[in-house]
């Protein structure tokens, strides 16, 4: 039974990928794919990029949530409450004002840069904090997010960019076409690199003292992992927008079921992260077809409910 669980989950996600390829406003002319090269257009220009983006963004955000929770040794931290996403959003706005026609790569670099700065600021505040209670850390993150968000909104209002900003950040996969999603492969690569340092991350999760006495370079491991988190979230925020709760609920659910031995749980975190993102996006396309609800909005609702259930079920894991 246990040996079958992973293949079954993998098959389920593959099923969702197929469903995602098949769902949408313009019908894919499946029957003519063999004979007519133009029949591939819908699939290649719109459906495939969108589906790949869903899988990669879903897994990357979930894994970066896992990393943050391990490194801060706190279950309630996620990219959105650790300074990265709000800072990246500010970065996107700044580049949107300064250079509206900037290529995706430039936007990505700017957002990643802001994201790193935001995370650094968050960690700096944590270091100054004398009272490190489990609830205070995410609260600090939420407050930092609120301050950064307020600055972003203020700037957006001044430049009359508020509507564009909301559209950019809504976690909407419908805008993803060929030519816009390719940078997400980089995110996939960064996520794969996390697997290589999984054991070191697990040890860092046991705290500085344990890491040092086991001969691990604590600082460089921490720095490396945090850079990955910041870059991943910068890129995802540019391409897709924010995916609320994903980085919070996925690692927590997997931790409850499978524990925290990261090398073993990363594949599960990736699968569940992609699966939930695919599911929310497909649902968003179906519920009000031919209109769409952004996956980010559905994730917000779905994620909040799941998170509450996790909190109620397992009060010890705080």
């Amino acid at each position: 039974m246990k040996a079958l669980a992973f293949p079954v989950a993998l098959l389920a996600v593959i099923g969702l990928v197929v469903a995602s390829l098949a769902t949408g406003a313009g019908a894919v002319p499946w029957g003519r794919l063999w004979s007519d090269p133009a029949a591939w257009d819908v699939l290649l220009i719109s459906r495939w990029p969108r589906t790949v983006a869903l899988v990669l963004a879903g897994m990357a955000v979930s894994v970066s949530g896992l990393i943050l929770q391990v490194l801060t040794r706190n279950r309630f931290v996620e990219p959105a409450t650790a300074g990265t996403v709000p800072a990246a959003s500010l970065g996107i706005l700044v580049i949107g004002i300064a250079w509206p026609a900037a290529p995706v790569v430039v936007k990505m670099l700017v957002a990643a840069g802001f994201s790193i700065a935001g995370l650094a600021l968050f960690l700096l505040i944590l270091r100054r904090l004398s009272l490190r209670s489990a609830l205070l850390i995410p609260l600090v993150g939420i407050m930092l997010g609120a301050v950064l968000g307020a600055i972003t909104t203020f700037v957006a209002v001044r430049y009359e960019m508020l509507q564009s900003l909301i559209a950019w950040l809504s976690g909407d996969f419908s805008v993803i076409l060929r030519g816009r999603y390719e940078v997400l492969w980089l995110v996939g690569l960064l996520t794969a690199m996390v697997y290589l340092i999984a054991n070191r991350l697990s040890i860092v999760g046991l705290g500085r003292d344990v890491a040092i006495t086991l001969g691990l370079n604590y600082r460089s491991t921490m720095l490396f992992a945090l850079m990955i988190v910041a870059m991943v979230n910068g890129v995802v925020t540019v391409v897709v927008g924010t995916l609320p709760f994903l980085g919070l609920i996925v690692p927590n659910l997997i931790s409850l079921m499978k524990g925290d031995h990261i090398r073993r749980t990363i594949p599960w975190v990736c699968l569940l992260g992609s699966g939930i993102t695919l599911l929310c996006d497909i649902a968003g396309r179906v519920i009000r077809a031919p209109y769409e609800i952004p996956a980010g909005a559905l994730l917000g609702v779905f994620g909040a409910v799941v998170f509450l259930l996790v909190l109620l079920r397992e009060p010890r894991h705080g």
Binding site: N199, S202, G215, G259
Partner: peptide
């Protein structure tokens, strides 16, 4: 040093959900 000296600290509050075997096997990391 990690191959010559092992240390047990006073405060061990691990947030990570690890099995006993996983935790012990991290002791082999050096």
């Amino acid at each position: 040093l990690a191959r010559r000296l092992a240390v047990l600290r006073q405060e061990n509050h691990f947030v990570s959900r690890l099995t006993v075997r996983d935790l012990v096997s991290f002791g082999r990391y050096p």
